[in-house]
Nucleic acid binder design. Structure first.
Length: 581
DNA sequence: TCAGTTCGCGCG
DNA sequence: AAAGCGCGCGAACTGA
């Protein structure tokens, strides 16, 4: 067991201030009374440096002198090693501690270093077992940090901090030798922004939300009662209020819904939106879609959302998994703010707190730009360099219309073509995608024709696809060097898409990291990120300036790995999330 | 009864 | 030859 000192029991911590400040690398870990930085509290701060005992500070007991010493050490420019930094950063901030220097996050490092044979879980115990070959038992320290501490708890807390030093010793060289150093520094710097997003949270206009909930309940009920009229094979009875109910019919059961469809002459294989698409004008199908929509809105968003409002802050603090998707994108849960419906009726419920404004920005066509860069497609690069409208250009190329005479409808169709085809969509898929997403009717012949012309016009994209098709890679990289081990059976679409999606993630993560610096002194906070969109809350008087900083930072966030294609972002000041384009 | 899987669908 | 991809979540369904 490594030696440790526990303060204040073992004397005064502040006497060690200078020798710790002289260190260039320190490991920091915390123990808390729970998992919620808004309602639970920080109990222990453990600080480990090479060649010294681990310093364990009991925040319940230590005095202001020791607090000041910790504050200064955390703020120093030395490298700070954390395991899952965003967690500790939130608790530290809630207790008034800010951190300086670069972050090294062992959890993010482990995720970047992940290989097919490596660990699938990234807790400290799993990764120390894998990278150090040591077995760490966490049993003693999982809970009970709010009363008197047992010696074993202090011992394990100290051990966790010293393990971080050892882990970096192994992982830092591994990141370099695996070509992951650049993406690691992007991820590490981004962790600060994610901590800020989670602790900031978002404010929900609950009154407006409740009205929307009531309205949607009514819509759902009406669609339901219309659907019961098709249920001849079920026993239809008037309910207490006189409207009809099909006894035993569960509209959420796809099995039963399939029967209902068949009974009414709609012979589909399954009840998915795609399968029902040819019948979308049938009254039964229309009612079903309306029911499903309303029921999804209710069960998926409207009803659960109020329970996510944190009683301590009155705001919704979602959880972000920084490397949540295999592509390198973030994911979000509890609640997932990345899937809030786009309808203005939903998004207008997300508002700034009094005296503040929202500042919202998103990247313009970032995945297409990334694809242009990866494929080095000359036509696309040229268009983006000249500030052209790529959707219009595609519309012109596939229809033969001069760019200036492209109609709105043509541009809309081209949008579907652009997004669909660079990711290996077939003519069939393109046709359905254009219909579903852009409300564009396209015959199969047209889809085939567009597909053909698209690949003839964009030679670089065509060559990029052909190269992958000819020799499917086992390993590939995003533009910032994020590494992908492709499954044996991974389809072409995945091989095309993963590095594109991941490179876009590299860029926005770089922007988030930069923002923690460029927003300093404005009073603005990052409150959400949705793949290619960043939301801030800013003091109203600064909002216009902040919008400029946000746009500028996002456009400068190429990190040097987008040499041929410029980035473009659009930012605006808003009084709710609905006010966006 | 309950954990795990599948479907369908919200977002990008 | 043909093929969009990536998530999280609720409800239904499956299997022991």
């Amino acid at each position: 067991m490594n030696p440790y000192l526990y303060f204040p029991r073992d004397g005064s911590f502040s006497g060690f201030r200078e020798e710790i400040l002289a260190e260039s690398v320190i490991a920091v870990d915390t123990e808390t009374t729970g998992l919620d930085p808004n309602s639970d509290s920080l109990r222990l701060i453990q600080i480990a440096v090479f060649g010294k005992p681990v310093f364990v500070l009991d925040m319940l007991l230590c005095d202001d002198t020791d607090r000041d010493a910790v504050a200064q050490i955390l703020l120093s420019p030395s490298i700070k090693i954390f395991q899952n930094a965003k967690f500790d950063l939130q608790f530290l901030r809630a207790s008034g501690f800010e951190t300086g220097g670069k972050i090294f996050d062992t959890m993010l490092a482990a995720q970047l270093l992940k290989t097919p044979g490596g660990p699938a879980r990234f807790g400290l115990d799993s990764i120390s077992a894998f990278f150090l070959g040591t077995v760490v038992s966490k049993e003693e320290q999982t809970s009970g940090f709010d009363g008197d501490l047992r010696e074993a708890q202090i011992e394990y807390a100290a051990r966790d901090a010293s393990v971080l030093l050892e882990l970096r010793g192994v992982m830092a060289p591994a990141l370099v030798s695996n070509g992951l150093a650049d993406i690691a520094s992007i991820e590490f710097q981004c962790a600060r922004a994610i901590a800020e997003i989670e602790s900031s949270g978002m404010l929900l206009d609950i009154d407006r939300w409740n009205i929307l909930t009531d309205d949607t309940r009514e819509t759902c009920r009406q669609a339901e009662s219309r659907l019961f009229k098709y249920a001849g094979n079920w026993i239809v009875q008037p309910d207490f209020f006189g409207s009809e109910t099909a006894v035993g019919l569960n509209l959420n059961s796809n099995k039963q819904v399939l029967d209902l469809l068949h009974d009414n002459g709609i012979n589909v294989a399954d009840t998915s939106k795609a399968a029902l698409s040819p019948y979308r004008n049938e009254p039964l199908v229309k009612d079903l879609q309306e029911y499903r929509k309303a029921s999804k809105m209710l069960g998926g968003f409207l009803e659960p959302m109020p329970s996510f409002i944190n009683p301590a802050t009155g705001r919704i603090h979602a959880n972000y998994s920084q490397i949540g998707a295999s592509s390198g994108r973030m994911s979000c849960w509890g609640p997932n703010m990345q899937q809030i419906p786009r309808d203005a009726s939903f998004r207008e419920c997300f508002i700034p707190s009094p005296g503040n404004s929202l500042v919202i920005a998103d990247y313009s066509q970032i995945e297409l730009r990334v694809a242009a860069q990866i494929a080095r497609d000359e036509m696309m690069i040229e268009a983006y360099r000249n500030g052209g409208d790529l959707h219009k250009l595609t519309a012109s190329l596939i229809t033969g219309t001069p760019v200036d005479s492209v109609t709105k409808k043509q541009r809309q169709a081209a949008k579907a073509v652009n997004f669909g085809l660079i990711f290996a969509m077939g003519a069939r898929g393109l046709q359905a995608y254009a219909q579903d997403t852009y409300d564009v009717e396209m015959s199969l012949e047209e889809a085939e024709e567009f597909r053909d012309r698209f690949f003839r016009a964009y030679k670089g994209i065509n060559d990029w696809h052909n190269a992958i098709k000819k020799n499917p890679p086992r390993v590939s990289r995003s533009l910032a060097g994020r590494r992908y081990f492709h499954r044996e059976d991974e389809g072409l679409a995945g091989l095309y898409n993963t590095p594109v999606q991941g490179s876009a993630a590299d860029i926005i993560k770089n922007a988030l990291g930069m923002l923690t610096a460029t927003l300093k002194g404005t009073g603005a906070r990052i409150i959400a990120v949705v793949h290619d969109e960043i939301l801030l809350e800013s003091p109203a008087e600064n909002a216009l300036k902040v919008a400029g900083i946000l746009k500028e930072t996002m456009e400068q966030a190429d990190g040097g790995f987008m040499p041929d294609v410029p980035l473009a972002a659009e930012a605006q000041v808003a009084s709710s999330w609905a006010e966006k384009q």
